[in-house]
Write a protein that binds this DNA or RNA. Structure first.
Length: 257
DNA sequence: CGGCTTTGACCGGCGC
DNA sequence: GCGCCGGTCAAAGCCG
């Protein structure tokens, strides 16, 4: 009888040891994942400081600025349409966002979720260039314009070669918009981080808080979000394999921070 | 006069 | 089928 109980306990202990070992391995993997995310957040933090002290931007595309697309560690294709956020003077009623290309406005509409009107633009080279964009003020923070681009230009800005969409030239030509633009991609982290840089929670009072403080708050809250997200994924047994593959990929490529 | 913006009308998708 | 909503059309007006 004792021997039966003993073997039962032994099996139980072995199972628990296996479970413990598996949890330990998962924890190590998660630790690496969180470290990678922290690195990305540090890069964001330093870029935000750089923008604050070194504005307007000089010759750096927002994608490069945030280190998001040089070498994606987890390969998720860039979403189409893509969005950028541009800080502007809130008193400026114009939704004409100077990005180096010429646009023709073909409509304006007040949408349900945002009291600010949404403007619809087509590339002036249409129909040969099928690119469209929508521009609308951010509902939570009217100092930001949200521009949604659909399609890709098949020509250079202003018809001249060598201009990037976010070239210093195109930015300086804009009298009202310059300070911050950040891309929103299909990655869940990138999307949340990018959005939260400008779309803070409604509980924040923008009128009394300096912009920089608000950004810092959001970065801090994003750190928590990343950790919560990783923790929630870890509860999914099928995630371990996918996570290991993603971490392996991320470690096999140079850090872009 | 040509190119652009404005703005009300119209259309199609979607949910109920 | 109906109403809502986002997206587009197109006529009218504006401007250089």
């Amino acid at each position: 009888m004792d021997s039966i109980a003993h073997s039962f306990c032994k099996v139980k202990v072995e199972a628990l040891q296996d479970e413990l070992e598996r949890s330990r391995k998962e924890n190590e993997t998660l630790k690496v994942m969180v470290e990678v995310m922290s690195g990305k957040l540090s890069a964001l933090r330093s870029n935000v400081q750089e923008i604050g002290s070194n504005s307007p931007l000089s010759g750096v595309s927002p994608y490069e600025l945030y280190g998001l697309n040089k070498r994606p560690r987890i390969e998720i294709p860039m979403s189409k349409p893509s969005q950028i956020l541009v800080k502007t003077d809130p008193k400026d009623k114009s939704l004409n966002l100077k990005d180096g290309y010429q646009w023709r406005k073909y409509g304006q509409k007040v949408t349900k979720d945002n009291p600010s009107p949404r403007a619809y633009f087509r590339c002036s080279m249409a129909p040969s260039c099928p690119v469209k964009k929508k521009v609308q003020r951010c509902a939570e923070d009217k100092t930001f314009l949200v521009a949604t681009y659909e399609g890709e230009h098949n020509h250079d800005p202003n018809g001249s070669p060598g201009h990037s969409m976010y070239s210093p030239d195109s930015l300086s030509r804009s009298s009202r918009s310059s300070t911050v633009s950040c891309p929103v991609t299909s990655s869940p982290f990138q999307t949340e981080v990018a959005l939260d840089l400008t779309l803070s929670s409604p509980t924040h009072d923008h009128k009394e808080k300096p912009r920089q403080t608000s950004l810092e708050d959001n970065i801090s809250s994003n750190t928590n979000k990343v950790e919560e997200y990783v923790a929630s994924l870890a509860k999914d047994p099928s995630f371990t394999v996918a996570l290991a593959a993603a971490v392996a990929r991320s470690l096999s490529t140079p850090r872009v921070l």
